[in-house]
Design a protein around this nucleic acid. Sequence first.
DNA 1: TGCTTCCTTCCAGTCGACTGGAAGGTCATC
DNA 2: GATGACCTTCCAGTCGACTGGAAGGAAGCA
Lengths: 133, 133
Amino acid sequence: MRIGELAATAAVSTKTIRYYESIGLVREPERTRSGYRDYSPAAVERLRFIREAQATGLTLAEIQSVLELKDAGAASCDHTRRLVERHLVDIDAQITRLEIARAELLDLAERADALDPTTCTDPNRCQVIEGSP
Amino acid sequence: MRIGELAATAAVSTKTIRYYESIGLVREPERTRSGYRDYSPAAVERLRFIREAQATGLTLAEIQSVLELKDAGAASCDHTRRLVERHLVDIDAQITRLEIARAELLDLAERADALDPTTCTDPNRCQVIEGSP
DNA sequence: TGCTTCCTTCCAGTCGACTGGAAGGTCATC
DNA sequence: GATGACCTTCCAGTCGACTGGAAGGAAGCA
């Protein structure tokens, strides 16, 4: 199948497929005599795999390292598991950062509610943001 | 004071200060006869304000809109509060996304633990990532 | 033959917040 | 007058995952 059909089937853009090819995430397909990319049905699976892995938060670089092992025929479960675990640590760190930011923002919002806006006139001071405990 | 001293005092780089000036976040300072930037002590406060606002998760564009109101002498508490509240909604959405991703990853990790790696040999399938319930 | 739709390559831009580096000017100190 | 620290401007690059657009070739149909 040509790139347009693959794109429609896998619900990605043709641009994205060519981009994936350019970074080595999908292999170069056969070409028709006129130079069009000609994909096998397996390409749909590969794109689906990439999208699923992406949905779990893996970056394209991480997905690529899984795919390379898969392509080499290696038992990739172990590698994938390590990647997944590393990513889990990252996600936990991100969540922690966001929760800290969230608490700070809540604090600001409450302080803003408690303040009289007419007293907030010093152009070099904003009582909402400044003056944290 | 010159840019190096300001940078050291406010714990930012000179590059960052010039960048902030280029996007209008800090005003153009006076210049010495030789063309060096010459800052008033108030610049330290402004940078400190920017860094604090940034630490609460506001983007530079958002900080700029607060600063513009402050510079205009307007009562900015109300505007700040709205920005803060909007950002709170964003953060909650981000946290939710991350928690979903986290649950998926945990699931993957458990599945990986339960699998026998020697059965993961089909180069087009990875039992860890695929076959989600 | 013309029209449309699809395909090709290649280059450049997006977002956010900087950072690096080149080429050259200025100031204080030895 | 030489050295070194500091300053100037300007241009380009980073990261990640694409997206836009130009210029031109190919396939199918009336």
